[in-house]
Design a protein around this nucleic acid. Sequence first.
DNA 1: GTAATTAAAGACTTCATGAATCCATGATAA
DNA 2: TTATCATGGATTCATGAAGTCTTTAATTAC
Lengths: 133, 133
Amino acid sequence: MKYSQATDYALHAMCYLVATAPDNPLSVQQLAEKLGVSQTYLSKMLTKLVKAGLIQSMSGANGGYRLRRNWEDISFLDVIHAIEGTASLFECGLDHGSECLIQQIVTEAEHQMEQYLKNKKIHELAGQFMGMD
Amino acid sequence: MKYSQATDYALHAMCYLVATAPDNPLSVQQLAEKLGVSQTYLSKMLTKLVKAGLIQSMSGANGGYRLRRNWEDISFLDVIHAIEGTASLFECGLDHGSECLIQQIVTEAEHQMEQYLKNKKIHELAGQFMGMD
DNA sequence: GTAATTAAAGACTTCATGAATCCATGATAA
DNA sequence: TTATCATGGATTCATGAAGTCTTTAATTAC
């Protein structure tokens, strides 16, 4: 069980966006170069972030991606959910008649993790993030 | 990202073992019947639990699997680690020079989940578990 | 000691998903 | 109207999950 590399890229891309002045957008080309990944591949993840309402895209010359108004509220969990989906990471496949107690416990554990990720906002990192290459 | 079904089976199998009198062992055949899974497949997971030191196996007639002395300490996390391995569920693949701050945060979130799973012992469930089919 | 029972191990198949590329299409500004 | 940029679909490749089959090894029962 592992988070996909796409989540890794998406989180880094979001950090770059937050660390950048919000008026001039970053193109997928610029972001891809910073992250060391192909443009076409990265664009898939950025599109997911757009559809999740986390960022905004603009076509045409001098276009690219930039933040939306609520950017200060965007959490790690928001980005992870946008890429990985929101399905529970444990679903009991056995057919016992009643509710699965094991499922309940593992789901609660997952909830603990999600709470932490929900309270960590991307912009908390942006300042320290500027220094990285 | 999802826990494997093998983890699902292993957790249920452990509950059955804890809910059973520890002196007479359960064979893989008995456990496979209860869980509705093939014997050969289930045996892979049980072997992992043995190698992780969580249970004990005995060959020969009237053999099977039973608990060890420390069975009351066995947690959900122990079982999950035995099946899924102990690797971190997020590893940053980008090569920035310094330590990855994103990695640190996600790893800490994972740690929150693991703490919860570490404090949940299998035997807490065993009583209620008897009723299930 | 031999046969029956049971776990362990490895080779193998199948299938789903992640990772990534390529190309065509659509939108927008200079 | 052309250059720039995002979006979408199709496709390839590798990996790992899920599961079966068969052989081997250990131990008890007779």
